[in-house]
Design a protein around this nucleic acid. Sequence first.
RNA 1: GCCCGGGUGGUGGAAUGGUAGACACGGAGGACUCAAAAUCCUUUGCUCGCGAGGGCGUGCGGGUUCGAAUCCCGCUCCGGGUACCA
Length: 817
Amino acid sequence: MSETYNVAEVELKWQKIWEESGLYQVDLDDPRPKSYVLCMYPYPSGPAHQGHIKNYTFGDLNVRYRTMQGEAVLSPFGFDSFGLPAENAAIKTKIHPREFTEARIAELKSNVMRLGSVYDWRREVRSHDPEYIKWSQFIFIKLFHAGLAYKAEAPVNWCPGCQTVLVNEQVLADGTCERSGDVVVKRNLSQWFFKITDYADELLDRLDELDWPERVKTMQRNWIGRSVGAEMDLHVVEAPGEVIRVFTTRPDTAFGMTYAVISPEHPLVPTVVTEKQKGEVDSFIESIKNLSDLDRVSSSETRPKRGVFTGSHVTNPFTGESLPLYIADYVLMTYGTGAIMAVPGEDQRDFDFAREYGLPVIRTVAPPADFTGEAYTGTGEKINSGFLNGLSIADAKAVAIDWLIQRGLGKASIQYRLRDWLVSRQRYWGCPIPILYCEDCGPVAVPFEDLPVLAPDDVEFLPTGESPLARHEGFLHSRCPTCGKPATRETDTMDTFVDSSWYFLRFCDPFSTEVPFSQEAVAAWMPVDQYIGGIEHAILHLMYARFFTKALSDLGLVPAGLREPFTRLFTQGMIRLSGSKMSKSKGNLIAPAQYFDTVGADALRLFHLFVGPPGDDFDWTGQADEMIEGCAKFLQRVYRVAITPEPRAAFIPDAGASTALRRATHRTIEKVTADYDRWAYNTAVASLMTLTNQVYKSLQSGADDSSISEAVDAIIKLLAPMAPHITAEMWSLRHRGEILHALSWPSVDASLLVSATETMVIQVAGKFREKVEVAADISEAEALEVAFESAKVRNALGGVEPSKVVSRLPRLINLIP
RNA sequence: GCCCGGGUGGUGGAAUGGUAGACACGGAGGACUCAAAAUCCUUUGCUCGCGAGGGCGUGCGGGUUCGAAUCCCGCUCCGGGUACCA
């Protein structure tokens, strides 16, 4: 009975049936409850890798499971098709990025389809399609008109070797270019920004309502980096009328300030530096200019804090004392006010600096008696702090802020680590920023009827620092839509994170030609019920998509109540090969395609589900092939018992065996369903294997045909979202062509879950000694009697009467001597 | 440095206070076969013992509990994130 099925033939057959039946195409008028399951749309880098397979297996499983539970599940797919690799390839090979990208999309798409994942392909979107570009530009203009897109000078990474601007990812940790190895320098360029900081508070606060992994939420909280404190003015002694504004989270420690620091880039540097100190300051600033960001940022053990005295002093408003003002590179112009009051008693960085430059230390919080550290940041009573003495830190903060406000010297203040989102890219293969520059009117949005602004094809791809568009005369010159005078086009394109910040909205209504998506469709499908993707997008993509949703909600493009795009997020584990992340650039790919025609997509999917918890990383070792083979064998084993069971030789019906199998079947339905709901697919598969083993045993033990049949049908249904092809085939063969995936999820017969007997564990002093089958309603007296019948138990007790008995009947009884 | 995870057989892992190692991979032995493949059966944490049976065992050290892989405290090692953010 070595009857098996032809993997490729069966799988391709069912893929065609699902596609043609429209089972997974859903529309607005669908009467079923609506839900939305989405995998992060991929950058098309070529054939699928194991990470894609894992991702789309989880996604597809959720779509099919929810569908079998009676929901209309929106399951779209698309491609994040703008990006650097295509353009770099164009520079190298002269193949147009579009041609390059579309070939890769075709490759990836065919792999995804071969996996058997079901999508509503009518809704496919690709970032580089003119229709999509049009609406990305439309949204940009809406943000521009709302003041949420603005232009400002910003430093960019410039590689002198490549003569080009680099994105942060291309700058290595040591500050060099990943391609040429040259030291990357900063250059100021006029750049477009989105005002994500306007939403900092909401982005932080609404994290609480999301069903996301805690660590992703923590990463976002840290990224936003909200700090509550105070700002205050320090008068410059040598320059009457000049004040330096500082930000602190510890206004309570102001009495401990022994110096102040401004950042080297601070605009008041020329004002406060005295003639005598000028030389020293200039050479200091010169010396740090040549340091890479990383060097400037790393101090700690090996490298002392670096700074220089300005020659000026500032007044501590609380004490009236005159304190030295320093310039130091540990104070950043990009955070807070670019200047600080330094309190070495309660801040380790200030302490390090004070030690280096021989500055005094005053404690303003009493540390515990046994405190041996340097700066003390713990709790305690305020000391050496005038009117704050004796207060707690929290009270002292409030009192100090009130004191500042009353005298007009400062205010409460909140600062964020989060910066506005720089969206300009000096690149060709991205969505053009739809702006015209008119001499008279300034930056003007391209009128709606002129969208999309498309990049011309006939450009030269050269490794220069600007977009190829900047050298294309035909693209560059236009007319101002407001006054009609000559105007030049913006030649930068948008960060590709812009495209991925709203694609999930377009999926709701991809055919819309009047608006990017209708309110009605968005209201019906959004928010995404289950979003699935890699942990690498924990911060940027997810933060930007959240920002877009809030901004579009405020602009009235999506319903006012839609503030968060992704209700539930699952981040899958990474797949590594010998310790490092599997990736094309490392050349350590295990191509999934090789498995499709041998063991089949079902076995590969099952392997990814069975190998461990979905969120855990997995090391692809030599054993992986054998484990995949094992999954294939399991599927064949199910197929064999379902389609070509061996005739039962000497069959003696046994009611007990039938009941035992039926109980096992319904317990498995209960367990596997619970496992689906908690994303424990590895244990769900294990339970199905156990039940399958039991079916084989039951064929021998005399369980009747109907209980065997019930068990097999349950296995097929429970396995349907995981291994869709083979289960569909088996069901169709067993049930006259019925379409398995259109059926409903199996339900549990609760009466079969209860059993007259249970296994009771007998412990002596908490240690396992014996297990016995007992009546489910056993009393403690009876349980004790049963316990004493066991020689092992009597032995362990050593003839001593138990002084105490702990019982959790009928499962456990513990005798303590 | 700080913030998260994590450490269980030869391997992937199971067990969220109650039989540690489910399920699978791999190994060993056997059946079938001329032979192989496929399939099926038995066995497989370490250790003492001929055996019945016993002891030990979830990174290390303590603690709470009748009972701890699981909860608490202190270490240690590995992985990830982040970094002079005032």
